[in-house]
């Protein structure tokens, strides 16, 4: 008989982990807020100190939501790229999206120094940062899509994406070389990545990108399953390959581009989370992988952010460093233990 194992237990466990890491993330920070009071703030109940409510609702909650969106979104875009390019090394940034965002921000921050003038300093507010990086990734996305329409070979697209990344990185270096120390520092801080300091309106935009990207991913899940057999098989089963490829690349770009714009270029999550998830989810069905990868990505990001806060101190470490410091050993340990990369 054909048996398909239900995944209820898996998703229950993941859900439980997600909720607990969400609460852990909310309860940790430089100010100690009692657990009961966190709950009261969230549910709109009586809170002893008004400052606690403010910290939870205006600082920690937006940050935790950003962590969920950033972790889940980047992880999904990594999964999409790995399946589309049939390459375990692919991640959301192979298409040069983050390099595009970096270039946008570099032009804004560093270009202001190089070209001088009041125009530069006027633009360097936080909103224009978001705009610049979104514009940067969007332009690279357009270039990649144009290439996708022209070239059939996904490997060629992968390499072209890397070339885009290489060129933009070079332009960023040139800009860095000519800019002053203060501007350079500002740019480097952006590249550390940051989940905090999001306004609620920012989160609304972020959430819109997220829902759009995840929706497109779920719509492409059947095509992604077919692509597990490679392009020729997928085509032979009646798949409209070009159309689906555009849809998948669009989903990745919306997710990775939007998140990079708000939270900076957060490395590692997109590449590692899909591999991490495949170690314990015993299926390649994207209808199960997509939600699982989303949840694992969100959990990982929440935990990394909790660590980055360095509980009970005033320090906040760059999130970009923590995701790699925490994540990389986990992935190495898993691979060494199982001696096999499931892909």
């Amino acid at each position: 008989m054909i048996q398909r194992k239900p995944n209820t237990i898996l998703f229950l466990l993941l859900g439980l982990c997600l909720v607990s890491s969400f609460l852990i993330n909310l309860s940790l920070g430089s100010v100690t807020v009692p657990f009961k009071e966190i709950f009261a703030s969230l549910t709109g109940g009586e809170v002893i100190k008004d400052s606690w409510r403010y910290i939870i609702l205006e600082y920690r909650l937006p940050k935790a939501l950003t962590a969920i969106i950033a972790g889940g979104g980047l992880a999904i875009s990594g999964l999409l790229m790995q399946t589309l390019f049939r390459n375990p090394l692919a991640g959301p940034f192979v298409l040069g999206l983050s390099s595009g965002a970096s270039l946008g921000v570099a032009l804004l921050i560093l270009g202001a120094g190089v070209f001088g003038g009041t125009l530069g300093s006027l633009l360097a507010s936080s909103w224009s940062l978001v705009l610049a990086s979104a514009l940067g990734s969007f332009l690279v996305l357009l270039a990649v899509l144009a290439v996708t329409f022209k070239i059939k070979d996904t490997m060629a697209i992968l390499i072209i994406g890397l070339m885009f990344g290489s060129v933009t990185a070079a332009v960023v270096s040139v800009l860095s070389y000519f800019s002053n120390a203060e501007k350079l520092q500002q740019f480097i801080f952006w590249s550390f990545g940051s989940l905090g300091n999001q306004s609620w309106s920012g989160i609304l935009i972020l959430a819109t990108c997220f829902i759009l990207g995840v929706g497109l991913s779920i719509l492409s899940a059947k095509a992604l399953n077919a692509l597990l057999l490679g392009e020729q098989y997928a085509k032979s089963m009646g798949l409209k390959l070009k159309q689906k490829m555009v849809l998948i690349i669009l989903a990745t770009s919306i997710l990775a581009g939007g998140i990079t714009a708000f939270a900076g270029p957060i490395a590692f999550v997109g590449l590692a989370v899909p591999h991490l998830t495949r170690q314990f989810v015993k299926t390649s069905n994207h209808f199960i992988l997509i939600p699982a990868v989303l949840m694992v990505g969100a959990i990982l990001m929440l935990l990394c952010d909790s660590i980055a806060q360095v509980p009970f101190t005033d320090y906040t470490l760059p999130i970009n460093a923590i995701t790699s410091l925490v994540g990389a050993p986990v992935v190495i340990w898993l691979l060494v233990r199982k001696r096999k990369l499931f892909f």
Partner: peptide, 23 residues
């Protein structure tokens, strides 16, 4: 079609791979 040298994911179970034929 049946291709020999295709980029097929070997992480699929037999059942999953065969089921994809119904796509």
């Amino acid at each position: 079609i049946v291709l020999t040298e295709a980029a097929v994911s070997k992480n699929l179970t037999v059942l999953e791979l065969v089921s994809l034929g119904r796509q």
